[in-house]
């Protein structure tokens, strides 16, 4: 029988999996690397769950883990650990390309491309903004003040708009 902690883990993962995967994708060079990152995030969430005392909201806590794992993986030169992770219970289901709007796809590619060009810290802030988190939560996740987050977001958005416009033209 599943314990309370196991239930919590499965429930939150099921509800947040796609959101966390989107964040992983913005730090990865391709789909395989994004999957590796996501698996590492899942392991770290499970490992850290006994230490979760509810001081931060659960989503804030999970986004913190996701960002920290993604950044740590970028600094690690050898990708040995990521390669040895293989969680067979996690699969990616790709939608056939004819089922989604080509224009929409192009816009997403442009956005993704522009996010990839940002530095790591700007990337962390903007993906949380795109995930529709309030400034207060972004500040809690990044350790910055709300004002600082607001200033940063304004600046990053302006960079992003310029980049996307160029990409789409």
């Amino acid at each position: 029988m599943a314990t309370k902690q196991e239930d919590l883990f499965l429930t939150v993962l099921e509800s947040y999996k796609d959101r966390l995967y989107r964040v992983c994708k913005s730090y990865a060079k391709g789909s395989d690397e994004a999957q590796d990152l996501f698996q590492e995030v899942v392991l770290n969430i499970w490992k850290s769950l006994p230490g979760y005392k509810g001081q931060a909201g659960l989503s804030t806590w999970m986004y913190r883990i996701t960002l920290n794992v993604c950044l740590q993986a970028r600094y690690r030169q050898d990708k040995k650990q990521a390669r040895t992770l293989r969680l067979e219970s996690i699969h990616m289901e790709k939608t056939p390309s004819e089922e989604f709007d080509a224009e929409e796809e192009e816009r997403y590619k442009a956005l993704h491309q522009c996010i990839q060009q940002l530095n790591d810290s700007d990337k962390s802030v903007i993906v949380l903004f795109l995930e529709d988190l309030p400034y207060k939560d972004i500040a809690e996740i990044t350790g910055l003040t709300e004002n600082h987050v607001a200033v940063k977001i304004k600046r990053i958005k302006s960079k992003l708009f310029t980049c996307i416009t160029t990409e789409l033209c």
């Binding site: 993962l13 099921e14 999996k17 796609d18 995967y21 989107r22 994708k25 789909s31 996501f38 219970s89 996690i90 699969h91 990616m92 289901e93 790709k94 939608t95 989604f100 796809e105 997403y108 993704h112």
Partner: peptide
Amino acid sequence: STQQERVKL
């Protein structure tokens, strides 16, 4: 973007 690729657990 989630419409294009979904995580299945």
